[in-house]
């Protein structure tokens, strides 16, 4: 099986503080991996390392067989990132936002691609509105469109459900399942145990900068996870 994300002995320090310690983790291509952990466990730090936004203090990370230290630009073309921040410009329309990012990625046939992703996230009829008029859920859907615009094979999702109402949350879950069906690898970070487990093929628990548990999500019930999570994240 191909490996989408391969993290080896990775440590990340900020000054005198160690945010991540000796992480070893592989995520196969086409898999949904969910990472649980309390606030401050280092989940976002790990995502940022995978997205080549920052560099590990020691250790190596390979994305689809490419070294993050060697060729971050090549990797960025292959990664989509969704966080609870939209990374969108409020004073531009939905279409303009996507067109801007499309040009930054250097995409060809941009217009047809924009039409297509707008259709996917169901915002086609509102594409000419400036997005400061959008609801939180609509903005988040556009953020998804932004993240999948350049056909990334790997999607990183950092607490994507935060601040969404229930209907927007299930829309997002549906989109995630669709993206998996297209063969993309999805790395999801959340502390919503139920939703995270329902989506996952595999899951891990991060606590105080260390990966304390990693297992297949198959045959795992929510209550099992609840007990496990509490055991692993108390000291």
């Amino acid at each position: 099986m191909n490996t989408a994300i391969d993290i080896q002995n990775t440590t990340r320090r900020f000054g005198h503080i160690t945010a991540l310690q000796d992480i070893n983790l592989t995520v196969p291509t086409g898999c949904i991996f969910t990472l649980f952990g309390p606030n401050g466990a280092g989940k976002t730090t790990l995502l940022r390392l995978i997205a080549t936004l920052s560099k590990p203090s020691s250790g190596d990370i390979w994305i689809s067989g490419i070294d993050t230290r060697r060729n971050p630009h090549e990797i960025r073309k292959n990664i989509g990132y969704i966080s609870h921040q939209t990374m969108l410009y409020d004073d531009l329309t939905a279409r303009e936002n996507l067109a801007f990012y499309g040009r930054m990625y250097g995409l060809q046939n941009l217009n047809t691609r924009i039409e297509k992703v707008l259709l996917t996230v169901g915002l086609k009829n509102r594409q000419r509105d400036r997005i400061h008029k959008y609801s939180r859920g609509m903005k988040q859907r556009l953020a998804i469109a932004r993240a999948i615009l350049h056909h990334p094979s790997i999607l990183l999702l950092d607490e994507p459900f935060t601040g969404l109402d229930t209907s927007a949350q299930s829309t997002l879950s549906n989109i995630i399942t669709t993206l998996k069906a297209e063969g993309r690898t999805i790395f999801l970070v959340t502390h919503d145990l139920a939703r995270g487990l329902a989506l996952a093929d595999r899951f891990g628990i991060l606590f105080q900068g260390q990966l304390v548990h990693e297992a297949s999500a198959k045959d795992f019930s929510e209550s099992d996870l609840q007990t496990l999570y509490e055991n692993k994240t108390t000291r």
Binding site: L53, E74, K77, I79, Y81, L88, Y89, Y101, Y105, R146
Partner: peptide, 12 residues
């Protein structure tokens, strides 16, 4: 705002 700078840094 909205962490757009991060969005920019995510692009190549």
């Amino acid at each position: 705002q909205n962490d757009c700078l991060m969005g920019l840094r995510l692009t190549p």
